[in-house]
């Protein structure tokens, strides 16, 4: 290392600090999860993490989280677009409202959602005649996860959209491109990295969400139980090893998915010439 002198000083210090911080805050607690789950035998581990109820909860948690993140990507983008491109009365209030799902205690959100989406609630009553049930079904889980994930996409796309010169669109239009072509060929590729980042954050948040979901989910075994609930259930039965086993599976799957999305994001960012 002594031969290769770096232009930017402080590499050793900043890397050391980064690793130390990451270890204390993130890696050690996560390691504890794996260590605790390792007290189970392989057969016990397998039995705990692949029981039908737990498998059903994986499907719901990861499925609903991906779907919620996808919905938030589309509508969060529209919201960011409206906030950046148009002036309308109350724009600042709308802008502030976007962050509310961040600030609200998740249990409050959960109770509120459960109340209005229950068959007797404001929205639930409107949907009841069409035989659409939201509260106490997987659909309810999706609603809650969509609610809490919204700010992520808006807040990641908004600054990128603000930096995008309108000249680029003018150039495309003057070359004869239709509105849709401008969006598809010019805007979307430039916004894709930000959209993917927002998607990844919304997804990660949704996977770990507990408070807002359990009230609206109804927690019916095999139907509307989420994985975090399974972990809590195990804990309440003093089955710490079982709880950490499920947590370990969740962590691995989440990490794999996030790693994939981040790589996709890095690839799309390289394509628009932001890095290298």
């Amino acid at each position: 290392m002594s031969a290769a002198r770096r232009v930017l000083p402080g590499f050793g210090l900043s890397l050391g600090y980064t690793l130390f911080y990451l270890s204390v805050i993130v890696l050690i607690p996560l390691f504890a999860v794996f260590a605790k789950s390792a007290t189970l035998t392989l057969a016990e581990f397998w039995a705990t993490t692949t029981s039908p109820r737990v498998l059903a909860s994986y499907r719901l948690t990861f499925g609903a989280s991906l779907l919620a993140a996808a919905i938030n990507t589309v509508f969060g983008f529209l919201l960011a677009w409206a906030l950046v491109r148009y002036r309308f009365p109350g724009k600042r209030i709308v802008d502030a409202l976007v962050d509310l799902p961040f600030a609200l205690p998740t249990a409050v959100a959960g109770i509120a959602l459960a109340t209005i989406y229950s068959p007797k609630g404001w929205v639930g009553a409107l949907l009841a005649p069409y035989d659409i049930k939201v509260a106490y079904t997987p659909l309810g889980v999706l609603v809650a996860l969509t609610f809490i994930g919204l700010p992520f996409v808006v807040r990641t796309v908004q600054p990128v959209l603000e930096d995008l010169e309108t000249e680029i669109e003018e150039a495309a239009t003057s070359l004869g491109a239709q509105r849709l072509q401008v969006f598809r060929k010019v805007l979307l590729p430039l916004l894709l990295p930000a959209l993917l980042t927002g998607f990844a954050l919304a997804f990660a948040r949704a996977v770990g969400e507990y408070g807002s979901v359990i009230f609206i989910a109804g927690n019916i075994p095999l139907v509307s139980e989420i994985t975090p609930l399974m972990i809590i259930t195990k804990l309440e039965q003093y089955d710490y090893a079982g709880a950490t086993a499920i947590a370990a599976v969740m962590l691995v799957v989440s990490f794999a998915l996030l790693f994939l999305i981040n790589n996709l994001q890095a690839w799309s960012a390289r394509r628009i010439g932001r890095v290298g």
Partner: peptide, 12 residues
């Protein structure tokens, strides 16, 4: 044909 001061090339 319009040419902009800051080029407005599509960087992707």
């Amino acid at each position: 044909g319009f040419v902009f001061q800051h080029y407005a090339l599509f960087r992707h």
